[in-house]
Design a protein around this nucleic acid. Structure first.
Lengths: 137, 137
DNA sequence: CAGAATCCAGTAAGATACTG
DNA sequence: CAGTATCTTACTGGATTCTG
């Protein structure tokens, strides 16, 4: 996913020839970047309820995740200002994660993405017969 | 993106304990998956104008991309039903890429993501009091 | 011009063990 | 409970070369 991989270390080679919409693309790329990582979305969805979740709760709720991955993505999400982390310094360590206001604002955006994905035509996989005007030059 | 690399071959381990929103997550994950890859969004943005673009046009318009990456992401986009490919079997090979209707429908969704990203508060990085300085990775 | 095939490097993701 | 550290794997992305 957003893929990710790509730490987006990118060339600073933004030659803006043509009508290159790099600025717009950068914004969305960043947004996607915040979400890239195999577990980010799962974590987010578990947090969308509005209630804080403990580390082990999330670990239990997300089947194949390892502590390493969970903490890693949680930290990234926290660093990006999407989730909020609260550590209670008690004898049995308790840490709770919740969404920041900005993180909660992600919900509608994800929802439009979801709506878009739902509109996917069945014949998307098979070759189409070029219905109309599919060329310019 | 998601990085990156995750082919999302995932465990079919969807144990739905709790209120696991795996179904919703899957949809968005898929959607994000369509967009993951370092060049997908750039390509898409160049195609959002509605006009078809030639391979070399895209190659020229996107600074650091290699043919391999371009064709790879273009194929993925095509396979996902987001872009439409038309090959003219002429002596100087000409292939044009354009958005499918569904691909164009992505625009508003990307827009809400963009709007969300734009709302990011400045103090997102430093807002907390860093109770315990433990940090690594 | 458009695309395929190879080889290589960087790194995200996974498993496992250890710690406060 | 909630992490941290280290090793390994495998996939992504990039460079280069070759072809119709």
């Amino acid at each position: 996913m957003a893929s990710t991989h790509k730490k987006v270390s990118y060339h600073p080679d933004r030659a803006d020839r043509g009508h290159t919409p790099l600025s717009a693309a950068s914004g969305v790329e960043q947004a996607i970047g915040f979400l890239e990582g195999r577990w980010k979305l799962l974590i987010l969805f578990h947090l969308f309820g509005g209630k804080a979740r403990r580390f082990s709760e999330l670990e239990r709720a997300i089947p194949g995740v390892t502590q390493k991955m969970l903490i890693q993505q949680l930290r990234a999400l926290e660093r990006d200002g999407i989730v909020h982390r609260v550590a209670h310094h008690e004898v049995p360590p308790r840490v709770e994660y919740s969404l920041t206001p900005w993180g909660q604002a992600l919900c509608p955006a994800l929802d439009s993405l979801l709506a878009w994905a739902a509109q996917r035509p069945e014949e998307a996989e098979t070759g189409e017969a070029a219905p109309d005007g599919a060329n310019a030059d």
